[in-house]
């Protein structure tokens, strides 16, 4: 009992910050999304904002775009990360590791600006391509920013998240997977069989967990789509931000409803992740 009290006390400062900033913010959002805004004289509680949001074409478009961006970023990052990890696992080289760890330390905002400088039609990539004669004018460079397919956003996320998933996959590969692969080899498994039947299943739980984190993050992240995304439809967090910034305070409940919905969807992914973690503990 004394031990538990001690642990609780030790955790108290962190718990306080989390509960005030996170739970406090979230409950404020929930309250406002239900239309309770005494500042503008609204005190009755209703689900009108949710009805309005969920019934609107804008929300549906945004939701689809968000799922597409988060899904594509996660999928591409995961495949590239697994391939990179397989390529890197035998190299003890510090350089490759350093190059790979670099993006992890760079803020998303800076990454977005960096990608924009390289891939915009007036950027480095366009000028290099023109100079090499691949395209006539820099402006002929394909539009990768503010475009319908959100290429710029996905590129930024891939650049940022590949190293993260790679590190997780590498840790698994360099651990027991290497020994299991040797066993499989002496039992007659060729390279492809070893990957498919042994290595992949062994690193999959870690990789899946890491990509779920990436999905949940890219689903709820705001700054990269805000900087590099098209004006319509926007990604859900950008949509929520635009509603929030509206001069008309009566659109505040809708903004908060979108936020709560983002939180709910992300929570679903977190639950899936936790379940996976528990499954691993048992296995």
């Amino acid at each position: 009992m004394g031990r538990r009290v001690k642990i609780t006390l030790l955790l108290a400062p962190a718990l306080l910050v989390v509960s005030v900033l996170f739970a406090g913010g979230l409950s404020a959002a929930v309250v406002q999304s239900l239309g309770y805004l005494p500042a503008i004289g609204r005190t009755e509680v209703s689900l009108d904002a949710y009805r309005e949001v969920l019934g609107s074409r804008d929300f549906l478009d945004s939701l689809l775009l968000t799922v597409y961006v988060a899904g594509a970023s996660t999928g591409i990052s995961t495949v590239l990360a697994v391939l990179s990890a397989l390529a890197l696992r035998n190299s003890a080289g510090r350089l490759s590791a350093a190059i790979f760890q670099l993006p992890v330390t760079i803020p998303h905002l800076v990454a977005a600006v960096g990608i924009a400088l390289v891939v915009s039609q007036t950027g480095l990539g366009a000028r290099v391509a023109a100079a090499l004669g691949l395209i006539g004018e820099p402006s002929e460079f394909p539009a990768l920013l503010f475009d319908r397919h959100s290429i710029g956003i996905i590129l930024t996320y891939v650049w940022k998240e590949v190293p993260f998933i790679t590190l997780v996959a590498l840790a698994a590969l360099r651990g027991v997977a290497a020994e299991l692969e040797e066993v499989a080899q002496t039992l007659g498994a060729n390279r492809w069989q070893r990957f498919w039947y042994v290595v992949f299943p062994v690193i999959a739980p870690g990789v899946v967990a890491a990509s779920l984190i990436v999905f949940a993050f890219t689903f709820g992240a705001f700054e990269v789509p805000y900087l590099l995304g098209q004006t319509y439809p926007t990604i859900l967090p950008v949509m929520a931000y635009n509603e929030y910034r509206s001069i008309d305070l009566s659109s505040r409940p809708a903004a908060m409803a979108i936020n709560v919905l983002i939180a709910l969807i992300t929570a679903l992914f977190a639950a899936a992740y936790l379940r996976l973690g528990r499954g691993l503990g048992r296995g």
Partner: peptide, 20 residues
């Protein structure tokens, strides 16, 4: 001859069973 074609099965110090 690569290991997978040598027909030399090995048992290690750890059992190294495929956990999945």
């Amino acid at each position: 001859v690569p290991p997978e074609q040598r027909e030399a099965a090995m048992v290690f110090q750890k059992s190294l069973l495929f956990p999945h």
